[in-house]
């Protein structure tokens, strides 16, 4: 377990280094930072002076070294557009995205798993067919369409929910949360539904497919032959065996949701990292873009490591040392 953890951490470090290199190359290849930073009428002396100050005349490996050292300390430089440290901007925006994404993930698990189990167990009921049909729609409608439709119905027509923003937030130890105010919760509802709609259908279909597969296995047939109740067979034996792929996919999806909440954040003007990134792209704000890239990769790496560790919790076959596996018959 310890060896496994160390191996995973080394792998993670390698991934992060690769990503850092890509983020670093952005500075070099996406336009000239000096041109970006200086006014148009800057003199040649000013240019060389700035180049020297930014360390752009150092050898490439040394520059990369500086970049990594700074990044590890959370220093991604100054945003071109806001003229504020990038780390501050990210820290401001991160809670908004995280809260929205985790609410969406919880919602998709809480709704998706029971729906998947139900449609697998009652394959021929009309409700299963309905859920299957609706889920097909859920999986094929693009996020921005859902978002816009929700705004039309609940903000424009019914005037129940705010169409943009995060509502009132409360600061708790540097983390601004919208979960403690009524307007914060109200503002959260539509973005979360928009974001989780696809996830719900994904989880539902995944659980259904896995469950159908598991229900065909010998140990389920044997559990029935032992006279266990349907509840014990379905929820005690079958469901737990379907959880492995669900954990994997959920882990990947959390990462993807954080990275690609961009559209939802844009539709609802949600002040999260996605919106920050969109603004950065339109202003070619390279420090923000590269910091975003590094942050998202870090989140991916961390979540996937957690997922790998969850396997150990769920599957005893991974837990026991391979050495003392079997005894003679």
């Amino acid at each position: 377990m310890i060896a496994f953890l160390i191996r995973r951490l080394l792998q993670g470090a390698l991934v992060m280094l690769t990503v850092a290199f890509i983020a670093f190359s952005m500075f070099r290849f996406v336009g000239d930072p000096v041109t970006n930073m200086l006014p148009q009428d800057a003199t040649l002396e000013q240019r060389t002076e700035l180049q020297e100050r930014l360390g752009l005349n150092d050898p490439l490996p040394l520059q990369f070294g500086h970049f990594v050292t700074n990044a590890v300390q959370g220093d991604f430089g100054i945003s071109y557009r806001n003229q504020r440290p990038v780390s501050d901007l990210i820290a401001e925006r991160l809670p908004a995205t995280m809260e929205m994404v985790f609410a969406a993930v919880v919602l998709s698990l809480v709704i998706g798993i029971p729906m998947g189990v139900y449609t697998a167990l009652r394959r021929d009921s009309w409700l299963s067919h309905l859920l299957q049909g609706v889920s097909l729609a859920g999986i094929s409608v693009p996020t921005f369409v859902t978002g816009i439709l929700l705004i039309l119905v609940f903000s424009v027509w019914l005037n129940w929910l705010p169409s943009f923003g995060r509502g009132d937030v409360v600061e708790i130890g540097g983390w601004s949360t919208g979960l403690l105010t009524v307007s914060g919760i109200k503002a959260l509802i539509m973005p979360v539904i928009t974001l989780s709609l696809f996830q719900i259908t994904l989880i539902m279909r995944l659980v259904r497919a896995e469950m159908l597969e598991v229900l065909k296995t010998d140990y389920i047939r044997f559990a029935r032959a032992r006279g266990l109740t349907n509840r014990a067979v379905h929820f005690g034996h079958a469901l737990r065996n379907t959880l492995m792929p669900v954990i994997t996919i959920t882990g990947l999806q959390i990462g993807a949701l954080i990275a690609f909440a961009i559209i939802t954040e844009t539709v609802f003007q949600w002040p999260g990292m996605g919106l920050l990134f969109m603004q950065a792209v339109s202003f070619v704000d390279i420090p923000v873009m590269s910091a975003y890239l590094v942050m998202v990769s870090l989140i991916f790496v961390v979540i996937n490591t957690i997922v790998d560790m969850l396997y150990f919790v769920v599957d005893p076959r991974l837990r026991v040392d391979a050495g003392k596996n079997t005894t003679g018959a």
Partner: peptide
């Protein structure tokens, strides 16, 4: 029938490698 199975009729299957749920002792 469910109450009967295991109580009055036991069953042994062909493949012991797959007859037991791998996740439980």
């Amino acid at each position: 029938l469910r109450r009967l199975r295991g109580r009055r009729i036991g069953a042994i299957f062909q493949d012991p490698l797959t007859s037991l749920n791998p996740l439980y002792t």
